[in-house]
């Protein structure tokens, strides 16, 4: 009856083709507090209200009225993306600006990263990753798939901790390898993507699988990006790790453990 309010939002450039393209209809997959996630033609987008972590597939509204507008959105409600906006029945999020979820990391040596990782000993608790980081480091594709697929889907919630661990590992391995000029790692991670995403489709939530897909492009949640930047010399790694580990219930700590493991794989490879 009433034209829904228009709220400006910061949109991930990873979503540019969908948000700027011709309008496509989709469906709300879920809603929880300050976040609503939707499926538009097979891509998962997350609309967030202030206070939520900025995600690589995020459409982040800054208006204090966003949370109230999101409250009335329910799963299976229609949603539309395109023409520079993400539309729900009760609110219209206009792409007012764009952010890049892939952190630009300063160039640094693997040795430097090793020193920064040492600062995090005792700060970030390692997690059993079934040998994923080690397998990436030695370019053992079979073992990497074996390890990653055992993690995927393990844990509770929308993004099981095992998924966060894998996402953190692959994103960190890719980005730190690029920053430090370590060869081979990116290719090893690249070879893991196809089989693992096929596996993930049946093994975990579509929301979590979407975040994993972004991780394979080096696109991560904002606090994970800050930790990665700090590992490469921009910022304080301990402070960044604390911020990341405070995110969510199990997500933050698992993501942090993954980032440390992924960066460690690069260090190991270069040693």
């Amino acid at each position: 009856m009433l034209a829904p309010p228009v709220m400006p939002a910061a949109v991930s450039v990873a979503l540019a083709t969908i948000v700027e393209g011709a309008p496509q209809r989709g469906t709300v997959l879920g809603a929880s507090g300050p976040a609503v996630w939707v499926d538009i033609g097979g891509t998962v987008l997350v609309a967030t209200a202030p206070g939520a972590v900025r995600l690589p597939n995020g459409v982040a509204a800054a208006s204090s009225e966003a949370a109230a507008a999101f409250a009335s959105i329910a799963p299976d409600d229609p949603a539309t993306a395109g023409g520079g906006a993400l539309l729900f029945e009760t609110v219209r999020l206009r792409a007012a600006r764009w952010f890049d979820p892939r952190p630009a990391l300063p160039r640094c040596s693997a040795g430097y990263v090793a020193g920064r990782l040492a600062l995090l000993a005792g700060e970030v608790e390692p997690r059993a990753d079934h040998g994923l980081a080690a397998a990436i480091a030695r370019h053992d594709d079979g073992a990497a798939f074996e390890a990653a697929s055992r993690s995927i889907g393990s844990g509770d919630g929308l993004t099981p901790a095992g998924d966060d661990l894998v996402a953190g590992t692959v994103a960190a391995a890719l980005l730190v390898a690029r920053s430090s000029g370590a060869g081979g790692i990116a290719a090893a991670v690249g070879r893991l993507e196809g089989p693992l995403m096929d596996h993930a489709a049946g093994a975990t939530t579509s929301f979590s699988a979407a975040l994993l897909r972004h991780a394979f492009r080096g696109e991560v949640a904002e606090p994970a990006a800050a930790l990665l930047a700090a590992l490469c010399g921009r910022g304080d790694p301990v402070a960044a790790a604390r911020v990341l580990q405070a995110v969510g219930h199990s997500s933050g700590p698992a993501l942090a453990a993954g980032v440390v493991a992924g960066a460690g794989a690069v260090v190991e490879r270069s040693a």
Binding site: M1, L2, P4, P5, E65, A68, T90
Partner: peptide
Amino acid sequence: DSVRLMQASAAVQKVPGVEV
């Protein structure tokens, strides 16, 4: 604000006999 007006519209819509 618009959100409040939307909520108010919704409340009024629920009153029996209100069509629009």
